[in-house]
């Protein structure tokens, strides 16, 4: 355990800034470079880095695999749900304008894009992590009978 000391220290050092950067990318996605997809990947990368340094089990204790599908679903529903809500509010699919029809600052647009990007971010994050868990958690070898 001691031979990864430097690695672990560095991971601990970088973990929070990565998450922060991810959130930055996430929230500036609507008018700057970035967006939910990238943010989700970056967010997940922090946990992946953590798992590399501290082991899969520890990470899975922090973020249990069983909650990831709910995250994924919530993210997707947030994205699709925004579109559906605009439908019900009388606009076209993803017609954010109808979210705040009287705003002079295009508040509807902002709100809509924010929600959609948030959904995308959640979905991508949970998907990435799920994939990582699956790869990392694989049994080391496939026995002959399984082939």
């Amino acid at each position: 355990m001691m031979d990864h000391l430097i690695l672990r220290v560095m991971i601990k050092l970088f973990f929070a800034p990565i998450l922060l950067f991810a959130l930055y990318v996430q929230f500036h996605g609507d008018y700057g470079p970035g967006g939910g997809f990238q943010a989700g990947v970056i967010f997940a990368s922090a946990f992946i880095l953590f798992a590399l340094g501290f082991g899969l089990r520890t990470t899975q204790k922090a973020v249990p695999p069983s909650v990831l599908p709910y995250f994924m679903v919530t993210g997707l529903l947030l994205y699709a749900g925004t579109g559906v809500v605009t439908l019900f509010l009388g606009g076209n699919f993803l017609d954010y304008y109808v979210l705040a029809p009287n705003s002079h600052h295009n508040a509807g647009q902002h709100m809509g894009i924010f929600l959609v990007e948030l959904g995308v971010g959640m979905a991508v994050f949970s998907s990435m992590l799920t994939i990582f868990y699956y790869f990392a958690g694989r049994e080391p070898e496939i026995s002959d009978e399984d082939w």
Partner: peptide, 25 residues
């Protein structure tokens, strides 16, 4: 919501929204 006007998007949205919900069943 004008059903006929929104019709083109519904065949995509319906299974698309239904898919994640399915995961929770």
């Amino acid at each position: 919501m004008d059903f006929i006007a929104q019709l083109p998007v519904l065949p995509v949205v319906l299974p698309f929204v239904a898919a994640p919900l399915c995961l929770l069943l």
